[in-house]
Design a protein around this nucleic acid. Structure first.
Lengths: 349, 349
DNA sequence: TTGTAGGCGTTATCAT
DNA sequence: ATGATAACGCCTACAA
């Protein structure tokens, strides 16, 4: 007996010392390259040859798991999509992420995910990280407006933005946030509101900025002015909604309605209204944005704008895969719709 | 002139044709192994040698990104944690995920994430997938109770469950769900409720099952019987809460309070109450579970049990890394606490 | 300190 | 159809 150490024929598969092609080739009495070929082929018309059958049997017995690191190294394809998705704790982001995962999985791709802080530095680092893992393409969900162009342009793999877009220089799959903001605002204007506050979210997020642009557009279309004191910038969290609402409702001439650029903040606005003893919608109308699952069942169901998160993730993957396949990546703007519930009504006076 | 094709000295970094160690070694006039060493060293006490400086300069100029696929293949460590996390769209899960990511990142690890459907078959497939990517360890968030032991036991890398546990055979980092259920129920019992309904979630999730066990325990401790008709199983979604509540409230002798095993379903219960014209807490007390951000600001702020999601993710990573480092993986049960808000009160009669 | 050689597990290109 | 061989990019003894 020699001192060979990979001869243990009846290793319980799964101990240290991974089962590799060499092991199964040895057991099947064929060459490694044969084993490789057999395991990657589909059954030929005339059935498996005898050696091929032995290979397949050996692989099953040993619990062979191909080492994708090695195969990716060799083939230069990882079948992995890199995803940069800050703020995963937010339902909206998480559901985009899940849609991305499903679509990727259906196409035979896996996700390499990072959830860096919502800052450009951290996001660029994340991109570097993913690139060094040789992902086949990148989906980035939360780029800031006017981000550094050079760092993300001309990468070695296709990249596509989603949820937010950083400007026109990168293809992006996003929802029609301007139209959404317009719809929300026009709904309130049509009800007769003339002083509408906006919990406007952060200035670096295209989603927030464009929903506010839609707010302005709605006023413009009716030749109404916008009082800038009614636009307060915050973050996307519940607490931001609370603080923003208190700011608005403390004004000398407070709004009769508030448009929050996301549902979470809208719930914060509801909280602030409750704290002040105001009834919704009697004393204050509220419109949110996104139509997350819970808002339909709140004690006061929320009027909101439905954003197509699942579609967004799926389309982003679809476009990215097309780009990986060769073409230029292509963006998309998805339609949104208003969902009227019970948090909005005509102003009392 | 030979036919060498990797001599293009002034490639714009980032085109196809990745920059590798050989390229930078060539440019710096040193051997590949030297380049490798230099780039992985920290600056020696007496500063960089001249060749080392050239290596560093070349790497910077060419925008060198080490190929982690190759280095992982060689070193047999990927610095990657595989994560199986179904139901990412749920805030609770997503925040665990984010906590896992932060902790992993802080330790120099990346996540390879999958969000398969919440079924054991899909989850086991996901594990296989991750293992073939040679992750250094696994975190699995949603195993079903009494899952197949053999498939997940004796893997080639450490594995740890979190959020839910599948039984005693796998180390798990979870919250004290029995105690949480007991706290919620005891709160209602102490208020004087004697018919308490439970929106009990799915039977395969330890979280749901143990919160219900806590519900029973609270009754036991007061020598009160549990009416099984008051325990209705559902899923974790809003709609499950709506349906479950309608079932309960349609009983001949309906409950005066409902404990929903998660906040999302509790909001569904609120919705059902509203649909029936019942006031919360006057006509119906409601307790949720998890203390997700929005419930504190609802028009009727929700009494709930706070679950330590961020801690859970962090501890899971910590334990996993310890196991990767050599030891046996070790589970943990984290404490929970009751948060009393406005959705609970003494029964009217 | 730097160079040399061999190999991680897989696949592609040959020749047989 | 199968076998031999080289190479993907990097790392690590070991030798100079």
């Amino acid at each position: 007996m020699g001192s060979a150490d990979d001869q243990g024929g009846q290793e319980p598969p799964g101990r240290r010392g991974e089962v590799n092609l060499q092991a199964i080739a040895g057991r099947a009495g064929v060459h490694v390259s044969t084993a490789s070929r057999v395991l990657r082929q589909t059954e030929p018309a005339r059935g498996w040859s005898a050696p091929a059958q032995r290979v397949i049997a050996a692989a099953a017995e040993l619990g062979y798991r191909p080492n994708r690191l090695a195969s990716s190294l060799r083939t230069r394809r990882s079948n992995t999509i890199g995803v940069v998705m800050p703020r995963l704790g937010d339902t909206v982001i998480a559901s985009i992420c899940q849609a991305v995962e499903s679509a990727a999985r259906a196409a035979g791709y896996q996700l390499l995910l990072t959830t860096p802080p919502d800052e450009m530095g951290a996001q660029l680092e994340a991109v570097d990280f993913l690139l060094s893992r040789r992902v086949d393409g990148l989906i980035v969900s939360s780029l800031h407006l006017s981000s550094q162009i050079p760092r993300l342009t001309n990468l070695s793999v296709p990249i596509i933005a989603t949820n937010r877009h950083p400007g026109d220089w990168l293809p992006a799959v996003v929802a029609d946030d301007v139209e959404g903001g317009r719809l929300a605002t026009e709904h309130l204007l049509a009800l007769g509101h003339r002083r509408i506050g906006v919990v406007a979210g952060p200035r670096h997020a295209s989603t927030a900025v464009e929903r506010v642009a839609g707010f302005r557009l709605a006023h413009e279309q009716r030749d109404l002015p916008v009082d800038e004191a009614l636009v307060v910038h915050t973050d996307f969290e519940v607490e931001g909604g609370v603080v923003g609402a208190h700011t608005l409702l403390s004004l000398a001439d407070p709004p009769t309605a508030v448009f929050a650029v996301n549902d979470t903040a809208a719930i914060g606005v509801m909280g602030a209204a409750r704290q002040r003893g105001m009834r919704v919608p009697d004393d204050l109308s509220i419109v949110g944005y996104n139509d997350i699952a819970v808002v339909a069942q709140l004690p006061t169901p929320l009027t909101t704008v439905h954003s197509p998160r699942a579609t967004m993730g799926a389309v982003a993957v679809e476009r990215l895969l097309a780009a990986i396949g060769g073409g230029e990546p292509d963006g998309a703007v998805l339609p949104v719709s208003l969902v009227v519930r019970s948090s909005t009504a005509a102003p009392l006076r």
